[in-house]
Every structure is written in C-alpha cells, then in structure tokens.
Amino acid sequence: MRPANARMFRAGLVALLLALPFAATAAEAPKPPPQPWSYQGVFGVFDRPALQRGFLVYKQVCSACHSMSRLSYRNLLQLGFDEAAAAGFAAEVQIADGPNDEGEMYDRPGRLSDRFKKPFANEKAARASNNGAYPPDLSLMAKARPVGADYSFALLTGYINAPSNVQLMEGMHYNKYFPGFQIAMAPPLAENAVEFPDGTPASIENMARDVVQFLAWAAEPKMEERKRIGVKAMLFVLVLTALLYAVKRKVWAAVH
C-alpha cells in the first residue's frame, strides 16, 4: 500500500476516535461523592462496631417503614452480637405462626431462625401508611443502585430546602441526590435519633455512615469470605502459572 493511502486510513481512524467523547451529559442528579468505606479493596473488611451501630439505626429508625426480609435474626451473629443479644432482638417482635393443633394461627416471640419482621403486611398496607409511596425492601439496596453505598449515604445526608423555582408536590421532600429530586421519604435521620451504647455521637452523618455500612453488609453477607478465598485462589493460580511457565519454557527449549 502506498503511504498516502495509509495516511488516509489512519486519519479515518483518528476521526472515528475523536467522535467518541460526544456523550450525553444530561445527568439528572449529581454523582454521589465516593466515601472511604472500610470494606473496600482486596483486603477490606467490615467495621464490626459500625455494623452493630448501623443495625441499631435500622432497627430504631428505618424498620418503621422498610423491610429487610432477606435477613434472618441469626445473621446478626455475624455482626459480632452474641447469641443472647441476637435472640433478644428476635424476641422483641411477635411473629405470626401456625396453624396449631386447633387450626388457629397465633403470635409468638421471634426466634433466631425467623426472617426480619416486615413493618407492613403487604405493599398496599405500606402505601396506605406512606402517602401512596412504597418504601422498598433494603436487603439488597446497596447493590440495587449504581454505586449503591455512596448513593445511599448521599441520599440520607442530601436533604436540602427546595430551590425557589421548584414547586414541591404534596407530601414530597427535596433531596439533591434523588433522581428527579422529589422524594416521598421525609428526612429519616435527626440528630441523636439513636443512642449508641458505645458512646459514638449520633450525628446525622455518623448514623448515615453506619447504617449504610450495615446495608452494604446485608446486600452480600459473604463478601468477606469471598475476598478471603479470592486472595488464596489468586495466590494459588499465580504460583501454578509460574510453574506452568517454567514447564512451557523447558518443553520449548529445543525449538527456540
């Protein structure tokens, strides 16, 4: 091929690549700022005291409206609560069970094997109590939104007064990180809404950070196990690959 032709083809390629950055910039809400979560990275683990505090925030604030039905009370053992404490949390709620020998349903205190009790019997009941909005289940919330943990933290701390040019709909609140900005959930966290047994100040930011870490754990309770096994698996394959490379070199030595 003559050089002129080659130059034309290269110019075409460059033009094609230059066209790439014309991406739509119509992002609705600002990107949630990244937070320094302790569980990030290859060796990151959950902060157990933060998880326990986060569970308290969920129990005393969020659970009034939001279910977490993929968790069982037995899962709380993983947060570092002892069995008596976890069983105590379970026993605080009444679970419908039965039928008994008479064919009747009855209520009994919760057990470790029970799922977290839902605040509402069904979606209709939840909507009826929440101005028509349905508070979503939080079990997987940290994975069900893009950058879920950062987003949840931004949302919990993102309530501001509506700009003057915005007409809030009835019963809605303004949140700068919610898509569309108008959210049915009232600002859930208030200063000192929870009293932490370890004396951590219950600021809105602290509570938000802890409850979001709790949500991140709840979305994948096996995350630490996954990384632990992952490190071992990678090291094993790395050594194996080095050996295989040596074998390959030896086998091919006569050819090269």
């Binding site: 996954r226 096994i229 698996a233 394959v237 295989l244 390959k248 086998v251 091919w252």
Partner: peptide, 27 residues
C-alpha cells in the same frame, strides 16, 4: 507436549483475570 504446555500457561493467565473479577469485582 508443546501446545498442551503453552495452552496451560495461557490458561493460568486467563484464570487470573477471571478470578480477579469473580472474587474482587463480581458485579
């Protein structure tokens, strides 16, 4: 043994990437 050895070495490299995503960025 020539290409069995070469394929196995390549497999090791490939599995490193595969495991990297599976264990550290599975979603």
């Amino acid at each position: 043994p020539y290409y069995t050895a070469k394929d196995l070495f390549g497999l090791g490299i490939f599995v490193l990437f595969y495991f990297g995503f599976t264990f550290f960025a599975p979603d």
